[in-house]
């Protein structure tokens, strides 16, 4: 009844549109699941990797910036009226459910619309959802590279004649990445905040914080 059963349609549409410049997530998703809590990755497939982007203050950040903490990542855009607010609110609710442990997680919105989403625009927008939500933007090439690493799909769709009259199609997955930037879990739009919080809680307890102190030894 849900997106899983329409996978075939999605793939066909993407292929026809020719817009899927790379192998994005739905291309390898499995058959319909009755409990779409987390999406399982097929063997040999992984997600994530290095990125270099600009944060809300205009500062350059990379995947290394967030090393040592978990990242909860969503690809969206600030002109998105409906789906992005819903997914970002779910992320915020899941973090609230985590309580103090939420400090271990950095919630991140990576824009798929760098043309309009400046650092200032992202700063204003992310505050609507969670005080710690960070918006990241970059050049078209930097955004494309980040999306490719996460196999996120996006495409500009014109809605009028003016240059700024467009919307973005985009995949609506939420990624949980580990302390070293490794892939931990993938959530789809049907995942509830409770399920997301539970997955984060499990991941955090399985990977306790590494002390910031370097081990002593060897140096004289």
């Amino acid at each position: 009844m849900t997106l899983w059963q329409r996978l075939g349609v999605g793939l066909a549409t993407a292929a026809v549109a020719g817009a899927a410049a790379w192998f994005f997530i739905p291309a390898w998703l499995g058959p319909p699941r009755s409990e779409p809590v987390q999406v399982a990755l097929p063997a040999g497939i992984t997600l994530g990797g290095p990125f270099s982007l600009i944060d809300e203050t205009g500062a350059r950040v990379t995947n290394e910036t967030f090393r040592g903490r978990f990242m909860l990542i969503y690809f969206g855009f600030t002109y998105c009226p409906d789906v992005c607010p819903t997914e970002l609110a779910k992320m915020a609710a899941a973090l609230d459910l985590l309580g103090d442990a939420a400090e271990e997680v950095v919630p991140i919105l990576i824009t798929v619309d760098p043309e309009r989403d400046t650092p200032a625009a992202l700063a204003q927008y992310t505050d609507l959802f969670h005080p710690r939500l960070i918006g990241l933007t970059g050049t078209e090439a930097e955004i494309a590279a980040a999306a490719r690493a996460y196999r996120a799909y996006y495409a500009k769709v014109r809605t009028g004649q003016a240059p700024d009259e467009y919307t973005m199609d985009h995949s609506a997955f939420i990624y949980l990445m580990g302390r070293r930037g490794e892939f931990v879990a993938l959530f789809n739009p049907e995942t509830t905040p409770e399920q997301m919080a539970e997955a984060m809680r499990r991941a955090i307890s399985a990977s306790p914080r590494v002390s910031k102190m370097q081990p002593q030894g060897g140096r004289t």
Partner: peptide, 28 residues
């Protein structure tokens, strides 16, 4: 609120309602 999922007083199954509308102060 920006993150609401339904009209006032309806959680609509996500259990968070509209707690993040103002961007000030986490509730935790």
């Amino acid at each position: 609120a920006a993150g609401a999922m339904g009209p006032a007083g309806h959680g609509h199954g996500h259990g968070h309602g509209h707690g993040h509308g103002h961007g000030h102060g986490p509730r935790n």
